[in-house]
Design a binder for these strands. Structure first.
Lengths: 203, 203
DNA sequence: TATCGTCGGAACGTTAGCGTTCCAACCATA
DNA sequence: TATGGTTGGAACGCTAACGTTCCGACGATA
């Protein structure tokens, strides 16, 4: 904004080649995520990111002041834009729908590798913790919609403990896929959905 | 063992200062874990580990051929030796006991930081995956004992889906403490235990 | 069409960790 | 008591990434 100050009459809006290339920015984001997945955030080298994107290092340092700011921008831009789980009219099938979508997200090799690394980094750095919290909040909103519908429908009590319910929904699948490293079949998801529904009714 | 070959008559068993110092080995383990927690495995520097342990680098390279072998030995020696959950006579209180012990483990800052890092690394490297599988197997045995008791007691059906039950037990607490980063109160654990018990009966 | 100012990319010196080699110190055994 | 052989620690040369600086190329605006 400083460039458009009134007392700086000589400046003019950047134009032509002087405006950042959106294409390269996109390539940098992608390269950053791939490097993150391959090496982990702590060992991530911006030099490698630049090389992978086919760009110079200055291209990065002009856009982002630090690795963390870069990561923040990346997650903001290409962060897992999980779709809202559909309304199937019943709790258990809603939960199944939620699990199916979560499985789709966790199937992406990049996501599966980056997520635990993000959590590990969040435990170490305050800044990364803030980023993680932001990502988590977006995720929680999706689950909340599901719960609200179930309460409105009468499938779950008004007194439902939403906080714990929101933990319960994704935890088991995350554990199985990220911690154990196995992807459950749709049939298994049905089993989990049934079990989780029972757990939710108890909250 | 090569040293004790019959055809090598001149050798004699190492003794005196020629035997590795168990104290230093212990210090190296501790230093490795602390560095791991602070920097992450990928960015872990053996030079720093040696310095932190007050030892030379050769002390490390003589004991372990690689960073991975070092990590393997560390987890084997100081790995979370979780105690078996006690037999309280009922499913829900057994589950609560399990959760209380898991919380105690996950409260340790080192564990909280290293575990997700271990999972992230397991997603990247085959060798670390093997290590993680070993750690996970030890963990699963604890849960299995709990489930077996409940089945014998009649609290859970013989047809219980053990695999999913074993996922269910730790997943929610892990999610809350490691992914979200919040430690639940004992009262909250009771809520979770109640909810999980309902889920288990549905498996 | 000339200009302006950022563009991408190459090169800089610095720092840090790598894996190895060498050596005096050490101490239970013979 | 002398000894054998590993000990811990310092120094080696090498590689990689750091963060910065410099420069010709570029293209919409005036």
């Amino acid at each position: 904004m400083e460039r458009n100050r009134l007392d700086e009459k000589k400046t003019r809006a950047p134009s032509g080649a002087a405006v950042p290339s959106a294409v390269l920015t996109e390539q940098l984001y992608r390269a950053f995520l791939e490097e993150w997945a391959e090496r982990g955030f702590a060992a991530l080298s911006l030099e490698r990111v630049a090389a992978r994107a086919g760009a110079g290092k200055a291209a990065i340092y002009r856009r982002f002041p630090s690795k963390l700011a870069f990561a923040d921008a990346v997650l903001d831009a290409l962060g897992p834009s999980v779709a809202l789980p559909e309304d199937t009219g019943a709790l258990e099938s809603d939960v199944l729908s939620f699990l199916l979508r979560l499985r789709a997200v966790l199937r992406h090799p990049l996501v599966r590798r980056i997520l635990p690394d993000l959590h590990a980094e969040a435990a170490r750095s305050k800044e990364m913790r803030a980023i993680n919290t932001r990502v988590a909040a977006a995720r929680r909103d999706l689950g909340r919609a599901l719960l609200d519908r179930a309460v409105a429908r009468g499938d779950l009590p008004h007194s439902l403990d939403r906080e714990h319910a929101l933990d319960l929904l994704p935890a088991t699948l995350y554990w199985r896929m990220v911690v154990i490293g196995r992807t459950p079949s749709t049939k298994e998801l049905r089993t989990i959905a049934s079990s989780l529904s029972a757990a939710l009714r108890r909250l």
